[in-house]
Every structure is written in C-alpha cells, then in structure tokens.
Design a binder for these strands. Structure first.
Length: 329
DNA sequence: AATCCCTCCAACCGCAGCATA
DNA sequence: TTATGCTGCGGTTGGAGGGAT
C-alpha cells in the first residue's frame, strides 16, 4: 500500500491545486461515490474537478473501477471463478481486462493480482506434484492421465497451466498464430493420428504406425528438427511409431478476434533404424514434448487447424467448453 | 516483545490507441 | 500532418499486515 501523499509536490491540476497521491481516504471515497452516483461517468478529469477531489482523473477512474463501483463482487474467488480464470488465461493470456469482462463483478486488477499471487503459486505446486505413473511415460505422458494422485479438476488445471505457461504472453501467442499455416503440419503424420479431445484435457492415444519415408520427407522439409533430444535425424528411419495423447486448445488471434482451434498431440515418437543404416539412432527412444513447442511448431506439437470461430460468439457461452461443469450467468 | 520475512493488493507508471483541434 | 488530451491496459511498486523466528 502507498502512503497518502499530502505534499502534492509532484503534480498540480489545471487550477494549480496540488494533487494527492496514494491511498484514498474515506472522505475522498464519499466524494467520488456521491458524484458518480449523481452525475454518472463523464470525462474523468472533470469528475476529479467537479467532485472537489485533489486527484488526477486517472486516479479517480482507477478508484471507481477497482473499488467503488456498486456492482463489484467482494470476497475471495470461488473455485468456479478460479477455474474460469485459468481457462480464460489459457485462451487470452495476460489480457486481464478481457478476462475481467467475463467475470461479472471482478476487476482486471483483482484478477491480475489473484493470478500473480495465488494461481501461479498453486499451479506451480501442482506441476511439481510427483505422479506414480511418470516412470512409464510412453503410456501416460507426464503422468497426467489415469489413476494418478491428481483429481480430474487438478488435471484440468494442470493441463491449462501447461498451456498458459507456454503461452504466457500475448506476443508469444501472436507469434504462434503468425506462423504460416498454408502447410498443414499434421500432414507430417499419418491421418490415423487425428483424434478429438475435450479442451484442456488429455486422452490416451492409440499407438500409431506411420510410413517412415513420409515422416522423414516432411521432417526434412520442416527443417529437420523436431525438438528431439539429441541429434537430428540424418537418415530415414526404418520404422516409426507414435504414442501419446491428444489435447485440444483454443487460441485467440489478437488481430482478427477469431479463435483458432488446434488439436495438439503430446507425442512420443519412437523410431528404429537397423544398424547398417545408422548406428547412432538404433533403437533410440525420442521424447517429443509439446509443452513450450508453440514457439516453433516443428518442435513436436502436432497441430491441425480445425476451424475458426468468432471469439465473442464462442465466449458468449463459456460453459460450452466441455470440461467446465458449471454455467456462467 | 522485537525483528525479520513474506504475501497480498491498492495504486502508480508508462505506453498505446483514439479523438479532436 | 502534427500536437494535445483522454482513456484504457498491463506491468510494477511498495506498504500493511501477519506469521515465523
């Protein structure tokens, strides 16, 4: 909190009067509240002047929006609100005002503070929760699915956190969306890999066999680096199998206001070469993580653009997201 | 009781976008 | 076209308060 600034030495208003900064006194709150209820919102510099406040318009606006507005909801965030914030953040990134617009009675500042203090920490703790299934990563990548210690809700939150942590800034998303989409990256892989999954959730995917030559040709065409641990492939493998899980994500385009729906497959690509082709890669297991791969969509995130929706239309009914078990008024 | 440390959150700051002169 | 003012947004700051030592 900031101490009230009674000196006013840093700012003066149009009349040369000293402007206060820092915490608002109850008297100032009363003045602003009464003025706003009587006159409604106008030019904020006029509000400050006409309400008899020695504050700048900007300060008045902030005080009204974040504290005095009658429609503000007080108190802690409900679990439903928390889940919605996490989900919206996975879609919108740090656009707090847009998130706040979808949580009636909550302000962008409140949500931002809540995110930075509570949610980040909670999700970080979740992400470090050990899972008994992580040892068998080929069948349950990350240990997220099935029989783990995490509840379904925690799994949802975890999955969403992974989305948002890899796309925490809008600029990152913009970069992800600005990439050329004339080539369908999914063509890298066998069509049988296509599957659907609820947003933010993981599904076990069947193991898929694919044509190694197709894989290799596309692999080379896309730059020959799939974010593989170790060296890039330098020769086509003899066999390729893909195991993993699928996840559906929604990305908003800051320019067009559209939503792009991507099916992401958290893949484990296992390839095998016989020793006379390439000893280096003989029976080598490669783990390809999709987390963080959006900065470079060749890095193992197998994406397929399913279609574009208008963001506003989609967000009108947030409960349409399948993993949310509540309805937004 | 005193001090330290951490968390929370109200408020500020700088910037971008827009309207208007 | 440029300057100016206003609004809104996101990042950051810093003080109050509470728990730990």
């Amino acid at each position: 909190m900031r101490k009230p600034d009674f000196s006013g030495k840093n700012n003066v208003n149009n009349n040369g009067a000293k402007l206060r900064k820092g915490l608002w006194s109850p008297e100032e709150d009363d003045k602003l509240m009464n003025y706003m209820l009587t006159n409604g919102q106008g030019c904020w510099s006029d509000v400050a002047r006409n309400a008899g406040l020695q504050r700048c318009g900007k300060s008045c606006r902030l005080r009204w929006i974040n504290y005095l507005r009658p429609d503000l909801k007080r108190g802690a965030f409900s679990p439903q609100e928390e889940e919605l914030i996490i989900h919206l953040h996975s879609i919108l990134g740090n656009r707090w005002s847009q998130i706040a617009a979808r949580l009636p009675g909550r302000t962008d500042n409140e949500i931002k503070n809540f995110w930075n203090s509570t949610v980040k920490k909670r999700l970080k703790n979740l992400s470090s929760t050990p899972s008994p299934n992580t040892s068998d990563s080929s069948s349950d990548p990350g240990g997220l699915v099935g029989g783990g210690l995490m509840s379904m809700r925690e799994q949802n939150i975890m999955a969403l956190y992974m989305d948002s942590s890899s796309l925490s800034s809008s600029s990152t998303k913009a970069r992800a969306l600005n990439r050329p989409m004339d080539i369908d990256p999914l063509s890298m892989f066998d069509n049988s890999l296509t599957m659907s999954a609820p947003s933010g959730s993981y599904l076990n995917a069947p193991q898929v066999e694919m044509n190694p030559n197709t894989f290799y040709e596309n692999y080379r065409m896309f730059g020959g680096n799939i974010g593989v641990e170790g060296e890039p492939l330098d020769l086509p493998p003899e066999s390729i199998s893909i195991e993993g899980c699928a996840k559906t994500e929604y990305f908003s385009d800051t320019n067009t206001n559209n939503i792009t729906v991507n099916t992401m497959n958290n893949l484990f690509i296992k390839y095998c070469n016989s020793s006379n082709i390439n000893d280096n890669h003989n029976n080598k297991n490669i783990k390809v993580e999709n987390i963080g791969g959006l900065n470079n969509y060749f890095e193992g995130d197998d994406q397929r653009v399913l279609g574009d929706w208008n963001l506003e239309e989609l967000m009108k009914d947030v409960s349409s997201f399948p993993f949310l078990d509540f309805h937004v008024e």
